[in-house]
Design a protein around this nucleic acid. Structure first.
Lengths: 357, 357
DNA sequence: TTGTATGCGTTATCAA
DNA sequence: TTGATAACGCATACAA
């Protein structure tokens, strides 16, 4: 009988279930049951345990718990870049909704780099998140996404679809949104519309290109390959490419940018070249990025309701987590709309950006 | 001998150290040693183990590891609001720096609510983060901060100091910054300067008030209590308070807002009242918040170098984690500077906002 | 109603 | 050099 009764706290000075058991001179399992309100423990015992637990401010070690239960009640939120309001707003919808449903959401950023994305996903797997809200950096990490699902980690793709991955998704209709944006610009009389930021890496960019093409075709404007330009999704590349386009006298009277940082880079270059917006060039973009406002030029933008998208994504994910049997992937479309930002309508659309707190 | 040799994967389909051991018919402890390149395991064994581990894409379960080691290599980043670029930029500095030093950073938001903050801190404690980068919601949760430190979780306060908490900190000199901002506005000939957003909840706001007072006194302007107004740190309250001030004919020719959302609310109300900026009212704020640009009005702002602040904060935290013996708290001041945002200088200061990626 | 034994995946200690 | 065993904090099946 070597039941040494030294009441030892661990080196983190955090009360453990065992500490409580020792202090009350009962078995750990009894405490465990009392804490989880099991039926086979007496009322008095429950009270005693709960009282002491409260006094000590006991909280179970979630690591130990999910080592056993395979459930962590943690959701991982994977984001390309926090500086884009669309993403940070979506994240807000996510952590708020998660909290309201008894989950915690941890936010990580991949910065459009697949190596980063891999690391963050593996980290999330390693700490046993239950599910991941995935805004994929590209299609290249599809094997990782799949192995996450193999491990039993549910994924929901938001904003960006991943071809070949059979999981639920939530996004705006990018083809439609881009079509509407382009049509609006055509309606303003522009016919040499630059599509700025094309790439095949992510679905939304492809879809936005399709919508652009569709709008042009409808107005019988030919798609001019010189007006379809690749850029990286960052400021510097967008700036220098746009600078080059202007200096090389590439003619265009409007530009549709596939995202906020790209638009900011393009807008800066346009401004620096002393071109007028919207007189010389009409600017269009996706995501209602306030950073663009810094340039003091008006622009068309597509509002994507990120906050709603975030909330809905979490609802969908949790629903799937809690009915693991039914596995039919769902694909939800969130409403979007085109808006003109010209410093007259500062309030308009702010419900997506500013909430009373 | 009940050593049943059914090679069972756990229900997450993730290879475990034990799986590898079984497949190679060796003991788990041997595999563990081989994986960690222990000296007392043969070269051949190491090769065999490493090869199989790679094939299976084995990664250790971090939960199990830190259950033993009491080290997780996880840092918690606690943020008031991701929509404020100052915070998201600081966060970026943090997760980049953490990653470069072999840590992972998880980001959580308290939204200026002490109940949220408590939950997030406890969550971080429950998953055994090694340290926390704390932007405190107020001084009210000081007991929680202290119990974190008791548990051995290192805290570094950034941006906001916490009175009575003995941990390292990093921030700008808010008194000086506010003094400079106020002085600049005085230099423009304004003497009825509203201080908008005063409260005693967080240190920076108090310090900024001190700087404001100092600048006024130096110019022999009396501090007028009617020009010192409390608001919550959100848009709605700032908007309605400012609206009220204008409608009640409170006279002022400049306003210094303690933060971005407050400035946005105030600016919107000023605009809606058809007052001119800067002719009628000069606007000053802290944090170089691009959201304000959306209003299309110029403003003075204090750049706080959030990206650098974030990186430095992580450096400091990791340094302390890795020399747990020496416990002298350090207090680092980051340079700040006053800038005028008037849509002419869109590039200026953008090194804090836009990095090439 | 309470306690004991075992296991989650890993590491550390000691024995072989 | 390798292996058996206990431990981390908790939960669960089963025995008392």
């Amino acid at each position: 009988m070597n039941k040494v009764s030294k009441i030892k706290t661990n080196n983190r000075n955090k009360p453990t279930l065992k500490n409580i058991a020792d202090m009350l001179s009962v078995a750990p399992s009894t405490v465990s049951k009392a804490l989880r309100d099991s039926t086979d423990v007496s009322y008095e015992m429950k009270m005693k345990v709960l009282k002491l637990a409260k006094e000590l401010n006991y909280r179970p070690n979630r690591l130990a718990q999910s080592l056993i239960s395979k459930e962590s009640k943690i959701l991982g939120v994977l984001i390309p870049d926090l500086r884009i309001p669309f993403f940070s707003e979506a994240a807000r919808g996510m952590y708020e909704e998660a909290a309201s449903k008894g989950y915690e959401a941890i936010i990580m950023v991949h910065d459009e780099k697949i190596e980063n994305e891999k690391k963050k996903l593996e980290f999330m797997s390693d700490i046993h998140v239950d599910g991941i809200l995935l805004n994929a950096a590209s299609n290249q990490n599809i094997d990782i996404y799949k192995s996450m699902e193999d491990e039993g980690i549910k994924c929901v793709c938001w904003d960006r679809r991943v071809e070949g991955l059979d999981c639920s998704s939530i996004a705006i209709d990018d083809i439609k949104a881009s079509y509407e944006l382009t049509s609006q610009i055509i309606k303003e009389g522009r016919r040499k519309i630059l599509y700025f930021g094309k790439n095949q890496e992510i679905s939304v960019v492809e879809d936005r290109y399709k919508g652009y093409v569709k709008a042009l075709e409808e107005s019988e404007i030919e798609v001019d390959d010189n007006l379809v330009v690749y850029t990286k999704r960052n400021y510097d590349d967008a700036y220098s490419k746009m600078k080059y386009l202007i200096e090389s006298n590439n003619e265009f009277d409007a530009v549709i940018c596939i995202g906020g940082l790209v638009a900011y880079g393009a807008g800066s270059a346009i401004k620096d070249a002393n071109l007028s917006v919207p007189e010389d060039i009409i600017l269009g973009e996706f995501g209602d990025n306030e950073i663009l406002s810094r340039l003091g030029i008006p622009f068309y933008t597509v509002c994507q309701n990120p906050y709603t998208m975030g909330k809905t994504a979490v609802d969908l994910l949790i629903k799937e987590l809690e009915n693991r049997d039914k596995n039919k992937a769902e694909h939800i479309i969130i409403e979007s709309r085109v808006l003109y930002r010209n410093f007259q309508n500062s309030h308009e659309g702010n419900k997506f950006l500013i909430s009373s707190s």
